Structure formats: structure tokens, C-alpha cells
Computed example of a mutant assay.
Amino acid sequence: MLSIGQLAKRIECPVETLRYWEKEGLLPAPYRGDNNYRWYQDSHLERALFIRNCRNLDMSLAEIRQLLRYKDQPDMRCDQVNRLLDEHISHVTERIASLTLLKDTLESLRQRCVTEKNIDACEILAGLSSDQTQGSTEKCSSHLRGVHPGSGRSI
């Protein structure tokens, strides 16, 4: 059996993350000793590694929850897993396109000021105050701020 600190160390994530996964129902509640300490078994370690690896692949908690449901049904065919992963790849592709556009916009903005000037003549600050910069990216683009458009899923 592992304490929460030992489990966190084994999977290289903070203790708070394990508590959060438990609260979200991704990680089953561990055995609690008389002192109310959490004690985790090897099955918790395996599941926590699975969750951590999914998070490292930028999967949402909803996607991980679904993958865990599939994992808990070993007789099921894996076509559902393939579909989920294909959807995730699509989200990642969209995100890459958005980030590429963001990078291009930032580089364009940076090119406005190639010599040192006084702040009141700074073309970057002027560009950030105009419609010109906003027009080169999506207006109020939620996915550039960390939420995938239309899904509410964190990216």
C-alpha cells in the first residue's frame, strides 16, 4: 500500500492533483486507515499513471473519464477508443492552427517596431489599441485563451 505522498511521487504529480482526480471520480476512493490517511493499492497506481499520461496528451477530464469507462469494459471493441482519439486529434489540429495564427499575428505586431523609440511612438502599443491587430485573429477567440470553441473543454 502507498500513502498519497508516495503515490504522488511515483507518478510525478502533486498530491493535490490526486485528491482532485479522486473528487472528480477518476480515481476510486482509497482505503482509509484509522488515522483517516489515504492508502492506495497497485490498482490506484496503474489508474493514476493512465490518467497522468492522458493529461500529458492534453486530454480533457471528460475524454479521460470515457477512456476509463472503456478500459473498465475489456470485452468491448476498441472502435469507440479510436473515435475518441480521432476527435482529440482533430481538436489538437484546430488548436495548432489557432496557435500558428496567433504566432503569425504576434510576429507581425513585433515587426511594427524594429527601432527603439519613445513609448508614445511605439507601434506595438499603437497596434494593440487598434482594430488592425484584432482583425488578424478571431475576434474574442475563446480557444486562444484555453477553452476549446464550442465544447467548453480546457485545452
Rank of each mutant, 00 (worst) to 15 (best):
Y70D: 05
D58A: 00
C122L: 07
S141V: 08
L68M: 10
F50T: 01
R19F: 14
D75A: 11
I89P: 01
C13N: 10
E138M: 02
E12W: 06
S43H: 15
R19T: 05
Q66N: 11
R153T: 04
G33K: 07
N82L: 11
P30Q: 07
P74Q: 10
S3L: 10
T17Q: 12
E46C: 11
S136D: 10
C78Q: 11
K9N: 13
P149N: 05
M59F: 04
R55H: 05
H143V: 12
R65E: 03
T137F: 09
R95G: 01
L57F: 08
T17A: 14
R65I: 00
R153E: 02
D34K: 15
R10M: 12
P30D: 09
T100K: 13
Y31T: 07
Q80G: 15
I51M: 12
L99Y: 03
K71Y: 07
C13I: 13
L102P: 03
N53E: 13
Q41E: 11
R19E: 12
S154V: 04
D86H: 07
R47T: 01
M59W: 03
S151R: 01
D72I: 07
M59H: 03
L128K: 10
A48C: 04
L106I: 04
Y31S: 01
E63C: 10
R153Q: 10
D79A: 11
Q134T: 01
A97N: 14
P28A: 03
D131N: 12
S90H: 15
E22Y: 04
G127Q: 01
R145W: 00
H88T: 02
R110D: 07
L49T: 14
Y70E: 06
R112M: 09
D58P: 00
R112E: 08
K71V: 03
M76C: 07
D75E: 14
I64N: 01
Y70I: 08
G33H: 05
S90F: 14
L49P: 07
K117Q: 15
L57E: 01
G25Y: 06
Q66A: 06
M59A: 04
S154I: 00
V15P: 01
E22K: 04
D34W: 14
S129M: 12
L45A: 09
S141R: 11
I11P: 06
I119F: 10
L101Q: 11
I96Q: 10
D104P: 09
D79W: 09
A8R: 03
W21K: 00
I155E: 02
T17K: 10
K117H: 15
V114A: 12
S136H: 05
M1L: 14
S136A: 09
C113T: 12
D72K: 06
G135C: 00
S142P: 07
V92W: 03
P30G: 06
N82H: 11
A126P: 09
L49V: 14
W21D: 00
Q111G: 09
R10D: 12
H148R: 08
K71N: 09
S43D: 15
T133N: 14
E22W: 02
L109Y: 02
Q41P: 05
E116F: 02
M1W: 13
L109T: 06
R52Y: 08
L45G: 08
L106W: 00
A97P: 06
L61R: 02
Q134S: 08
D104L: 15
